[in-house]
Design a protein around this nucleic acid. Sequence first.
RNA 1: GCAGGGGUGCCCGAGCUGGCCAAAGGGGACAGGCUUAGGACCUGUUGGCGUAGGCCUCCGUGGGUUCAAAUCCCAUCCCCUGCACCA
Length: 951
Amino acid sequence: MTYIQKERKWQEEWQKAKLFHSDPDSREKLFITVAYPYPSGAMHIGHGRTYTVPDVYARFKRMQGYNVLFPMAWHVTGAPVIGIAKRIEKQDPWTLEIYKNVHKVPEDELNKFTDPEYIVKYFSTEYREVMINMGYSIDWRREFKTTDPHYQKFIEWQFHKLKDKGYVGKGKHPVKYCPEDQNPVGDHDLLEGEGVAINELTLVKFKMGDDYLVAATFRPETIYGITNLWLNPDAEYVRINIDDENWIISKKSYDNLIHQKLHAKITGEINPRELIGKYIQNTLTDAEHIILPASFVDPGYGTGVVYSVPGHAPADFIALKDLKKNSELLDKFQLTHVIEKLEPISIVQLKGFGEFPAEEMIEKLGVKNQNDPKLDEATNELYKLEHAKGVMKNIPDFSGLKVPLARDEIIKKLLDSKKGDVIYDFAQRPVICRCGTECVVRILEDQWFLKYSDETWKELAMDCLDNLSIVPEEVRANFEYYLDWLHDWACTRRLGLGTRLPWDKQWIIEPLSDSTIYMAYYAIAKYMKDVDAKALDDSFFDDVFLDADKYSGKIDPDLFSDIKNEFNYWYPLNWRLSAKDLVGNHLSFHIFHHSAIFPREKWPQGIVVFGMGLLEGNKMSSSKGNVILLQDAIKKYGADVVRLFLMSSAEPWQDFDWRENEVKGTKKRLEWFSEFSKRIEELKGSPLSLKSYKPVSDVEMPINSWILNQVNQRIKDATEALEGFQTRKALQEALFLFKKDIDYYLRRIGDEINPEISNVLVYILENWIRLMSPFVPHTCEEIWKDIEGEGFISEAEWPEYDEKLMDEKIRKAEEIVQGLNNDINEIKKIIGSKPEKIHIYVAPDWKWHVLELANESSKTNVGQIIGQSIKNNLHNDKKELADYVKKIARMMTKMKYVGKLDEYSIIKDSQAFLSKEAGAEVIVYKEPTYDPQNKSGNATPYKPAIFIETD
RNA sequence: GCAGGGGUGCCCGAGCUGGCCAAAGGGGACAGGCUUAGGACCUGUUGGCGUAGGCCUCCGUGGGUUCAAAUCCCAUCCCCUGCACCA
C-alpha cells in the first residue's frame, strides 16, 4: 500500500468508528473553532496550516481526556463569487487562467462557473475532501453553509437582537464604486489603486449671477485668505442643475459627482475662457474675487474649480507668480492691470514662518513653477504643518483658533447656511476596477450600520477582551487598539449571497457581519436536518441561547431540550482561531457581538491568531499564481508530511515558509520515525508487542536512567508547548530533540541488548507514538496497530511525565561522559596523532569539598573560600588550593552545581563507549597512580582530567 | 502618518525573567564511516587562532547600566504587517 492509501484507510476507519462525532457527555468539554472558509478557490498549503493547528490541538486535548468539538462549515456569503461568475461568463482571460491553472478546475467544470452558487458548491465539496485527506478530526455532522435557511433564521434573530439593543443604525456612506458593475468594490476587486483612501472635500459655492461657481477644498478655513479663483482654460466646464441651483463645475468632475448627487443634471456647456476676468462673490466675506487661468488645475479632481489662497497654498502662490510673468496670457485675457493689485493675504500664524508660509515653502524646496513635481511636496508639507501647528489670525470670528477647530467650525457654518456642501474623492488616482472601468466615489443612501462606536457596546467588548486568553499575548495591544478605533460599520449590501436584513429586505447582510457568533450555531447544527426552518422563530433562539422568552413553536419538546442542552454543554467557546489580518475586523466583531448578545458566562475564552504563508520566501497569493495546492502537496508527500512540516517550521502566529528542500527533510525525518519500531525489532530480535511490555519503573543501567529522564523531560516540555499552541516548540521537543536523544542512546548502548534495554526501547517507542499522534496521526495509527496497541492511537492517552524518573544528577552524569568524549576528540584533533591509551583522572575529594563551600557562599569571594578551606583543613598544599579556587571562581558562574557525583563509577560504566568512540584504550583512575605528564591536577568536579598517550 | 511586530552564525530560526551562550533545532556545504557505486543512514566540522580540553572576536549601529549583556536602558538606522466596508 502506498502512504496515500494507508492514510485513506485510516481516514475511513476513523469515520466508520465515528471517532470525531462529539456529543455531550460527562467529560469536561473543549470547543475549538477556526474561521470557516470562503470557498471561492482551491485550498492551498496556507489554508493547510490554518486548519491543521486546531486539528493538532483538538487531537491533543482528546488524548488528554477532553470531549473535544472541532466543527466546520462554509462561509458562502458575499459578493466575490458573483464577480467571478460574471467574469467567467464574459470569458475574462485573467480569471479563466487563474481558475484553470492555479485552482486547477477541469474545463467541463469551469463551464458551470457562470453560476455563483455552483462555484461555492464546487469548492466546498473539494475543501471537504481535502480536509478529510488531511486527516482532520472534524465532526462533519455539523457542517452547514451560511445560505442555509436555518442559518439565515439564526442571522435574522441575531440582527433583531442587535437592533433591539440599539446597536444598528442608518445613514449615508461613501464607498468606492464601479459604474460599470454598478456595485461597490473592495481593494481585492481593483486592478489599480489598492488601498487608496477616500477623502472628504468641502464644496464652497461662489455666487456669480444666477449661477454658483463651486470650488472644492481640503482647507475651508482658508476661505478668508482668498484672492481669486482658478479655472483651467483648456478644460471643459458645464452648468448643472442640482436642487434648484445652478452649479458650474468641470465636465470631468461631473462624472464623479453624479454618483454623490444623484439628481444633478447637465443643463449646458460653459466655456471657461469666457469666465476668466469675471468676478464672483466670497461666500463668507462678501468680497469680490476675480477668476484667473491656471494650468495646474486638474479638471478631474474635486470640481475642477479651485479657489486661490496664495498666502498659505504653495500652488496658488506660484500660479499667481507664473501668471504675473506671463504677459502673453495676461494680454489675451486683459488682466495686466488687475493682477498687479493681487497680493497674498495672511490668515494663519505658523511658528517658524513669517507672513506667507506658502512663499517660504516654495523657496525652501526650490519649486520653479506650477508644473514642477516638487510642488506636491510643498503643498503636503505645509498642509501638515498648518494643520498641526497653525493658529488662525486676522479674521473675524475665528482668530486665535487652532486650524482643525476653525476648519470644523467653518464647515459647519457653510453647511448650515447652505453656502457649502460636501463631496468625496479618492486620495489618489487612478482607481481602476478589474473590469477596466475607472471607479468613482458613490454615496450609499439608507445604509445600515452596526454602531461599534456606541460607548456602552465598546465597554462590553473591552470587558470581554480583558477576560480573554490571547495567543500570542503580544497581539492583545492590537485588539485594544482596534476595539477602541472601530466606528460604525456598514453592515448591508445590495449585491451578493447572504441573508436579507429582516426589516428592510432590499438589503443583504454583509459577510463579516453574519459570521460573528456562528460558533454557537455549530452546537445546534447537527439537529437542523430534522427541523423545519419555519419552526425557528426568534423565541426558539432566545430560549436556546439565552434561556429566555420560552419557545412557542412546533419542535418536539424532547428534541428542543436536547438542542438547548447541547448548546449549554459546548458554550462558551474555548478557542477561536483566525488569521492576523482579521484582528481588526472579524475577530473584533466576534468579541463585540458576543458581548452584546450573550450573557457574560457565554463569552469567548480564547483567541489564537495566525501568521501568513510564504512560498520559497515569497508571499503566497492565489491571484498571483504563487501557491501550492494542498491536494498536490498531499499527493506528493502524504498528509502527515505536510502536517508535520506546517506544524514544525514556524509557530502558528509566525509566517511559515514552504521550502521544498525542508519539506523533503521533514519527509525523511518522518520515515525515520515510522521505521523506528522495525529497528527496535531488529535490535531485540523479536516482534514488538505492547501486550508483553512491562511499564518502566526502576532501571539498573545508568544510561537507561538517563534516557528515561530525557523522555520524561521531552514529554513535559512538549505538553507545555502544546497547551500554548506552540506546535513548533512541541515538535522540537517531541520529534527533533527526542530523536537526537534516541540517536545518542542507541550509540551509547552499542550492540548490547538485554531485557532491560529492550523494555526501555519499547517504553520510548510507546511514548513517542503518543506524543507524535496529534501531528502525524496516520503514521501513528499504523505503528500503533503494528505493535498491537489497543484501539486507535487517536483515542489513546496522552503521556504524562513522571517526576520520579527525572533527576538533574542523572543528566549531569551523562554530561560528564559527553564532555569527556568531546574533549578527547578535541585534543585528538589538536595533537594530530593517533592515541594509544587515554588516561582519565577524576577530581579528588578535597576539590569537591571546596566546590561545595564555594557553592554555599552567595558571592564568589576567592579569599574567603581559601580561608575557609584552610580552616576546615581541606587541603594541605596552599598554592594548589589557591589556584584551584581561582579556577572554580571563574567556573561557578558558568555551571550549575547539582551535588557530588561518583565520577569514577560513571566513567567506569561508560568506559567501553568512550573507548569505542576514541578508538583507543581508556583507563580510569581513582588515584593518579600513572601520570607521567602531571595532567591529573587539571581534574575538577564534573570535568575529569585527560592524558592522551600516543605512540 | 498612526498602530503592532522584528533585525541572531551560509540560509531559516530558538534564546531575550542577565551568568552552564560561540549561542538549540532544521536546511545547505564539507569531511569520515557504511556501501560494488549512488541514495539512504550514522558521526564529525561549518567565526578566528591554537601540537592538550584553551584563548580571542561575535547576536543591525552607537552609547550606557552591571563583577557579568544577544538578553536591561537610551539613541539611531533598516525591514515587515494592518489601517475597513473586503473574504
